[in-house]
Nucleic acid binder design. Structure first.
Lengths: 227, 227
DNA sequence: ACAAAAGTGTTTTCATTACACCCATGG
DNA sequence: CCATGGGTGTAATGAAAACACTTTTGT
């Protein structure tokens, strides 16, 4: 193993990880942002993320940053893209490996233990001005999310263990940004065989009680495009 | 702008770019490999690639490495994935941003100006033992390629300007690794409206002459899944 | 005349879409 | 009794798959 020379090393760009955390709350698709404590872009809203430590896997770094800055853990996480436009970071040459994560509505409540002035879920339609090129990253992530839920079972990571078909459909409608036909939706989603029908029933609301379902598996599964 | 401390800097992983160059030749899908001149993995076959220079965009670095090591230029190139498994590089912590490229059969002839002992197209089915985790990267790229030609016009980058439908179909069959129905293939590909029918005809072979076609546009276009 | 690929339509199957009414509950 | 979402089937459309023979050329 060769010793790496200092001058040589200095030529290399540094690398960060950023995470786009999506969640659906109050009938809207939201992205988790944190308020930056340091320069550059001090006090501006930005994606959770930060520098990679040596010998730390990227995905692990993403989870660590997420945990440190927002208290969220145990979510679905996948690599999105590596952004490297020159000038994206005023400190100089910094490339960032972006991840995207999906979390349950409930999980966002844990975040409440953190100061809401520091980490907050913003509706996609009301994003503040963002640090770096984070708006570009979020837009890219949204495209990925929309595609993803159409050919994988990724929705499991955004819903509680048990849910009604109505809740599942609403999730799809919010993410895709369009209404879906109820009968067609149920037919299709059930024909995929990824759901398990529970005995339980959701009642207590002033409406007809609804059957509860759960995902057969809570691991990522690729299917054929289905909407 | 803060001055970056040396110790801090040293904690950062270094970054490389690797390129998976696909081409179809002799009825087989091939990958371009180079023989490594230096340690580690000296004399072993590997993907073209190398360290990123400061202030050099990743895609540009990929093109540069490709040109320097193989003489290939002007190809379709897209970012694939960033690989960072610990231990993937014996020199220590090195992450690599992988790209994949598609080149015409003809373009590979330019490469002949380089020593064939140093850069060579290997059939996917007869890959040698590879340096680093390059086998993993190639496998990942193949999946991407197979998907890509099914919902984009990417094939343009692997064929000469004018080609017959037979040649186009053979390209698809080789990449997908399965036979396609001639009539269905023609119907589908023509219905997409991405091809322009030329006046010219390919003759000279001892068989019925074939109509020549060309892609209306030689830029990347996304379509709906079509095979 | 033969080998080799070019060229050409129809039928069947399957997935997708569109569409409207009654049901069970809580208030 | 009313508001709210839950629950259900069928017909029309369009895309994909299966399938076989004739044509044109060079040798």
């Amino acid at each position: 193993m060769k010793k790496i020379k200092f001058e040589k090393l200095f030529e290399h760009p540094t690398a960060t990880v950023d995470v786009v955390v999506f969640s659906v709350e109050n009938g809207e698709l939201g992205v988790l942002l944190i308020r930056r404590k340091y320069s550059p872009f001090k006090n501006m809203w930005a994606l959770p993320g930060g520098f990679i430590r040596k010998n730390e896997e990227l995905a692990k770094a993403a989870r660590r940053e997420l945990g440190e800055e927002t208290g969220i853990s145990g979510v679905y996480l996948e690599q999105l893209y590596t952004f490297d436009a020159p000038g994206r970071d005023p400190r100089g040459r910094v490339i960032t490996v972006a991840y995207f994560a999906l979390v349950q509505q409930r999980a966002m409540k844990l975040k409440a233990s953190f100061d809401a002035k520091e980490a907050k879920l913003f509706a996609m339609r009301k994003l503040p001005k963002l640090a770096f090129d984070h708006k570009v990253i979020i837009d890219y992530a949204l495209i990925r999310l929309r595609n993803k839920i159409q050919y994988t079972n990724a929705a499991w990571s955004m819903l509680p263990e048990a849910f009604t078909l109505g809740e599942l459909q609403r999730l799809y409608e919010i993410i895709l940004g369009k209404r879906l036909d109820k009968r067609n939706f149920r037919k299709k989603i059930l024909s995929l065989g990824i759901l398990k029908t529970l005995r339980r029933i959701k009642k207590g609301l002033r409406q007809r009680p609804a059957r509860l379902f759960t995902f057969k598996t809570r691991k990522h599964i690729e299917l054929r495009r289905f909407f």
